[in-house]
């Protein structure tokens, strides 16, 4: 990995995700710190990235590297943890039943990914699906339900959720800009994760005896 990528590009990308992950635009701008469970999910995601060979910590920090190189590696790893935490802070709904269910589903999905995916491409695909689905749930479905106006999507969702007490589903109404910021943040996060130093699949060379 080029020194500029490791020392500048990756830390700035990851820290930007950590910054934007907590931004909520409503009647005022709020920088929301992550809930405790987002820290747990962040650790789990980091573990998924390591097991799935997306992130190779030994390529960032090892005894053969200089102190400056190791410090850059440490910044990337710490940045990756905070960015992961803030991504969950971003896509998990703020309150009520959706908050609880999202936490449970994300926990199970991460456990499943941890157990099942051992190659880089499938982990990256899985990550994109998990964060993308959570984004759609929070910023499209729940936002439509919580919107005080009457939209077509809201009417369709009302019909589908007939019998469910909507008070448990509705969320604080956010400015539309929050959704766009969230989308950009997720895109930045996926780019940063894709750029992380990975561990190639190990290949065994075997001589075939005649």
């Amino acid at each position: 990995m080029k020194p500029a990528t490791e020392a500048l590009v990756l830390p700035l990308l990851l820290l930007t995700v950590a910054l934007l992950g907590g931004v909520r635009v409503a009647d005022r701008i709020v920088f929301a710190p992550p809930p405790l469970f987002a820290l747990v999910l962040g650790i789990m995601l980091l573990s998924v990235l390591v097991r799935g060979r997306v992130l190779a910590p030994d390529r960032l920090m090892n005894a053969s590297r200089s102190p400056a190189e190791n410090l850059n590696g440490l910044v990337v790893m710490v940045g990756a943890f905070f960015a992961s935490t803030q991504v969950f802070n971003l896509v998990i709904p703020d309150s009520g039943l959706p908050f609880l269910l999202s936490n449970v589903f994300l926990f199970i999905l991460l456990l499943n990914t941890m157990a099942g995916s051992h190659d880089r491409v499938s982990v990256l695909r899985s990550l994109a699906v998990i964060t993308g689905a959570a984004f759609v749930l929070k910023f499209v479905v729940l936002a439509a339900l919580s919107d005080p106006g009457e939209t077509t999507l809201k009417r369709v969702l009302y019909a589908m959720l007939e019998g469910v007490t909507l008070g448990t589903l509705t969320q604080p109404v956010l400015h539309p800009a929050t959704g766009y910021i969230a989308f950009g943040t997720l895109a930045l996060f996926l780019i940063a994760v894709w750029m992380l130093p990975s561990r190639p699949q190990s290949v065994a060379l075997i001589r075939l005896e005649e």
Binding site: P3, E6, L8, L15, V75, G79
Partner: peptide
């Protein structure tokens, strides 16, 4: 570059 990146970060 590495030291500069560290300070900026």
């Amino acid at each position: 570059i590495r030291v500069f990146g560290l300070v900026v970060s």
